[in-house]
Structures are given as structure tokens and as C-alpha cells.
Design a binder for these strands. Structure first.
Lengths: 172, 172
DNA sequence: CTCACTATCTATAACAA
DNA sequence: TTTGTTATAGATAGTGA
């Protein structure tokens, strides 16, 4: 999207890298803001600059995202059927996954002479891989939620572009 | 960026809104991934779809972001001088802000007959406004960190586009 | 870091399947 | 909901203060 096409790989020149970071982070915030407004979604972004400075952004607000995670609060139709439905499906899917894992372990141990009829070995291996990622992500999510316990000292606000969202970043 | 220019406002047609959401969220993830790779930054995104489904994304990994928040871990030059420097400056800036707030309150109460020499009233009011946002954001950040305490059941992985990052989203 | 300037490259709105 | 196509709107690389 510039004078020249670039590969998506680390920008060598440190100065250029920082400029790119500033511009693209700003663009990312704008995109998040647009998404939130266009679709009535809540979007939060947290991260670290190449220099290690923490930053965060929320649309419509960072709190809107965290509140929804913590209390299931939302602007619209959340409390009617979304939440119960969600849990039901989660339980169901989690059970399916457990079953598959168990089944897979049997195969791994060679205790099952036949591959299950409805799934071939390759599929089971895929499921296994998915499960691994899944567990990693659950841990990641757990870690994220922990963040709240470790207050970040936020020094300055800064929101570029039109979107009226919240940005947090520490300054040095 | 389409056949026609659109205003950034809620898409009325619900079907169109969902299509827009899918495409734009995908684009947002791509942008976050690119930013992370190009600049060696860590970026995490969390949010809720218009339907209330939670989703999350991390580049290079969600854990990379949360770990850095929790433990200050980073791929590169983090442990040398960034952290101590960060805290020093935070303390310094926080103190400056407290001082300004105090000073401002004096002005508000009319107890100070003169505006401080180095800052006029308008500037003080700006600072006050910033402080208010700041406190709100600190709360938001605190809430976010809490998320880790409330494990999300993550059902499926799904990462569109090239970036080799992690996506989490519940399915129904 | 930020801002401005453009030539270019990308993302995506509207449609259709 | 998801995918593909195409004309355009929008983002940004390179460069200079």
C-alpha cells in the first residue's frame, strides 16, 4: 500500500521500523474502531511496541470489552438467549472433544486395532493438534484475564484518526 | 475501499452487517499480524461479535502479549533497561500528574488568586480532563487483567489469511 | 515521534453463488 | 455464515522537515 510493495517480514532499518509501527498501529486502531461502529461489536487491543512500551485500545471502550468478558454485559440482545445457548454448545463441544481425545489416545497406544469407523487416523491427528492449540489458547486467555490484577500505569491518552475510541499508552 | 464509499456508522441490514464483520475482522487480524511481524511487536485483540460471541487473536501469540504484561518478558532487549527505565518514568510522571491535579484543585476552589506561572488555566483543565480519562483507562486495564481469572471456553481455532498467528473463537 | 506529500498497493462494498 | 470477483476507496512506503 505504498510506493512499493514490501514483504511482511521484520523491517531491518530501525528508524523505518518505528515509523512503520506508528503508522500501522494507528491504522490498526482505526480499523478496530470502524469494525466496532459498523457492526456494533466490541473490540479491544493490547500490545507492546517494538521498544517494549505497553499500549491498549478499546472501541467503543476498553471497559466495554472487559465488562462483557467479566459480566456478559452488552448493549443489545445479550442476556436473552446468547449466553445460555453459548454455554450449552460449549459443554457439548467440550464433551465431543474429550471423547475424541480419549479415542485418539487409544489409537496412539495401539490398543485399538481398528481406526474408528467415522474418523480415520489422519483426522484424529488433526483433532489432536487442534486440541493442543486449544489448550494453549485457553491458557493464554487465562493469562490475559490476569492482567487486571496487575495495574498498568497509564500515562497518556492518544487517539489518532476519527474514531472516538480510547487509547492508552505509557510514555517515557 | 469498495465499490462505493460508505459512512462509518452501523450497517442497518443485519445480513450485510455480518458479512462486513467477517471480512473486516479478518482484515483486522491480518493487520495486527503484519504489524507484529514488520515491527517485532506483540499485539493481542479481544472482543465480541455483533452476536455476542467472544473472540481473541494474538500475534505472534496471545501468550506473548499476556506474558509481557505479567512478567515483562519479551523477545529482545526488554530486560536490560526498558523495565527499570519504565518504572522510573512512570513514578516521575505520576508524581507530576498528582502535583498538577493538586494545583488544579486549588485553582478550582478559588483559593489560588493567580494561575501558576508555568501553566495557564486552560492547560490545567486539559490536564484535568486527561487525568479523568486516565483513571477510567486504568480501571479498564485492571478489568482486562481480570479476564485471566475467568477462563473462556475456547472451542475452535480459526486463522484466516497468511499470518501464522493464533485466533480463538467460540463456535455455536 | 509526528506531519505532509503522493504514487502505489491493499482491503473491501456490492453482487452473485 | 462463507467464498469469489471486480471496481474503488482507503492505507501506506518512501522521503523530507
Amino acid at each position: 500500500m505504498g510506493r512499493k510493495k514490501i514483504e511482511i517480514e521484520l523491517v531491518d532499518n530501525k528508524k523505518a521500523r518505528n515509523v512503520t509501527f506508528s503508522k500501522r498501529r494507528s491504522g490498526l486502531f482505526k480499523k478496530a474502531s470502524d469494525l466496532s461502529i459498523l457492526c456494533n461489536a466490541r473490540v479491544g487491543i493490547v500490545g507492546f511496541t517494538p521498544g517494549g512500551k505497553p499500549f491498549a485500545f478499546g472501541s467503543p471502550t476498553f471497559e466495554a470489552v472487559t465488562n462483557e468478558y467479566l459480566h456478559g454485559e452488552q448493549g443489545e440482545s445479550s442476556k436473552k438467549n446468547v449466553k445460555p445457548c453459548r454455554n450449552q454448545n460449549i459443554n457439548k463441544l467440550n464433551k465431543e472433544l474429550s471423547d475424541l481425545t480419549e479415542e485418539l489416545e487409544e489409537v496412539d497406544k495401539g490398543k485399538a486395532s481398528m481406526v474408528p469407523t467415522d474418523l480415520d487416523l489422519e483426522e484424529l491427528l488433526k483433532v489432536k493438534a487442534s486440541l493442543k492449540d486449544l489448550h494453549g489458547n485457553i491458557e493464554a486467555a487465562s493469562s490475559l484475564l490476569l492482567l487486571a490484577k496487575k495495574p498498568i500505569h497509564i500515562i497518556d491518552l492518544d487517539c489518532k484518526r476519527k474514531g472516538k475510541s480510547n487509547v492508552m499508552e505509557t510514555n517515557y
